[in-house]
């Protein structure tokens, strides 16, 4: 008969003491900070300008509606980037000589879109293209601004995909070729599934970065969270609405960042396991 786990209780107590110490320490440090800030001479004015509850409540519905626009742009752009970047990365990774012109085009594309600031692209596309009034294409700043984001982000993501493709061991290609798989089949069945798994952590970080960067579209007058908050600020000279927008972004990005950390950790464990 195995003995009952008598140490459990001691372990529980052993874990409790450090937890209490950290809690107490947090209360002391943050309490001191709060006391220091709120006792400052300027605090009432700061609170009125940035943490005004009435202003927050008044602006909340509009900012939330704008935030919903931001998140829809984010999700749509995400799907487009994932696909377009994959096309770019695969074209660049095909080795047969006939693909040479495509490889060159992708290289130029990536150099261009990585080298130009996103904000500039958003302005160029969001204001410039609708001004052309192209027949048969949408004319909204929102659409073309999103296109600019997709084109720019895809350049980065394509490079991430490609690093994942290059990291797949050469022997995998040799095995696929020896089995008679075409270069295309090799890519689809052998290389890409491994490459995507390799770069999942890097991709997750891009997902989080894009979640914030969609706010750039507000420069086009797109009524997203930032723009709505700004409109409120312009009419009331109170900045609390911007903090509402900030809060909403944090609400969305923090869970995503935690998810990214989780994916990264799991990936590292998987690699350690394979190496061990």
């Amino acid at each position: 008969m195995p003995l009952p786990p008598r140490r459990r209780r001691a372990e529980w107590r052993a874990a409790l003491v450090p937890a209490l110490i950290s809690l107490a320490s947090i209360v002391v440090v943050f309490g001191a900070l709060a006391w220091f800030v709120t006792s400052a001479e300027q605090w009432p004015r700061i609170r009125h300008q940035f943490f005004n509850i009435e202003a927050m409540q008044a602006s909340f519905p509009r900012v939330l509606a704008g935030f919903w626009v931001s998140m829809r742009v984010w999700l749509t752009a995400l799907v487009c980037i994932a696909i377009w970047a994959l096309v770019l990365a695969v074209l660049r990774s095909l080795r047969a000589p006939v693909f040479a012109p495509f490889r060159l085009m992708v290289v130029i594309y990536i150099d261009f879109f990585r080298g130009v600031p996103v904000l500039l692209l958003v302005l160029l596309f969001g204001f410039g293209v609708p001004a052309l009034a192209l027949p048969g294409l949408p004319n909204s700043a929102l659409f073309w601004g999103s296109v600019a984001m997709v084109l720019s982000y895809s350049a980065y993501v394509a490079e991430i995909y490609r690093s994942g493709i290059d990291a797949v061991h050469e022997g995998q290609r040799a095995a696929a070729k020896a089995l008679g798989l075409s270069e295309w089949q090799t890519m689809i069945h052998a290389i890409l599934p491994q490459a995507l798994r390799n770069v999942a952590p890097a991709l997750m970080n891009i997902v989080v970065a894009l979640q914030k960067d969609v706010a750039l579209l507000s420069v086009l007058g797109v009524r997203d969270a930032v723009r709505e908050a700004q409109i409120y600020t312009a009419t009331t000279f109170n900045y609390s609405s911007l903090l509402v927008a900030a809060g909403l972004f944090l609400l969305a990005t923090i869970p995503m960042a935690r998810l990214a950390d989780y994916v990264t950790r799991r990936d590292r464990e998987r690699r350690l396991q394979r190496a061990g």
């Binding site: 040799a174 095995a175 069945h189 599934p193």
Partner: peptide, 17 residues
């Protein structure tokens, strides 16, 4: 040709996924 000639490598090269 690949159907009629098979090859096995030192490092197995199985597809891990």
């Amino acid at each position: 040709l690949q159907k009629r000639i098979g090859i096995v490598f030192q490092s197995y090269n199985l597809f891990p996924h």
